[in-house]
């Protein structure tokens, strides 16, 4: 199979790129001397270490070449989107609409999900979780709002 799409090659690539990014960003910070380390000393050292580790991982990829495992595609797209929806809706509409949205959206990650079941689930969960945070723990959390 193609080495370039193997699991380890991609992982190594991620390390090299992230390490490189850290090096670029941290080059603005003062490196200092070992005796008086500047704010750049630690990030630059770590960035370089990450690049080195990435290169080592790339080398092992040539020998191992394990195929990338299948992604759980639907949940991977749906669940973060549900969390995102919650984050965007909560400040504008309050906890109830955001909570209902997150339960129903997240629930759709499961292939056999039925909207009615999820709506019922939301009707039970959302007031309960709101009561826990707003009433028991005293977090100021409007149930419904409009702004």
């Amino acid at each position: 199979m193609n080495v370039l799409t193997s699991k380890d090659f991609l992982a190594g690539l991620v390390c090299v790129l992230l390490g490189g990014l850290v090096l670029v960003v941290s080059s603005d910070y003062n490196f200092g001397t070992p005796r008086r380390m500047g704010p750049g000393f630690f990030p630059i050292t770590l960035g370089a270490l990450l690049v080195l580790l990435g290169c080592a991982i790339l080398l092992t990829a040539i020998r191992i070449g394990e195929r990338l495992p299948a992604l759980n595609l639907r949940p991977w797209l749906v669940i973060p989107a549900a969390v995102l929806a919650f984050a965007l809706m909560l400040p504008r509409f309050g906890f109830a609409p955001a909570g209902i949205a997150v339960v129903i959206l997240a629930g759709m990650a499961d292939r056999g999900a039925k909207v009615m079941t999820l709506a019922l689930l939301a009707a039970v969960l959302v007031p309960a979780v709101w009561a826990l945070f707003a009433l028991v723990l005293g977090v100021p959390l409007p149930f419904v709002t409009w702004s």
Binding site: F86, L90, A106
Partner: peptide, 22 residues
């Protein structure tokens, strides 16, 4: 399938309650 939407809701509410930061 009933459990995980509850987990996600709890995570959202819990994280928000830290600093009330979306």
């Amino acid at each position: 399938r009933l459990l995980f939407p509850a987990i996600i809701l709890l995570i959202c509410a819990g994280v928000y309650s830290l600093d009330r930061s979306a």
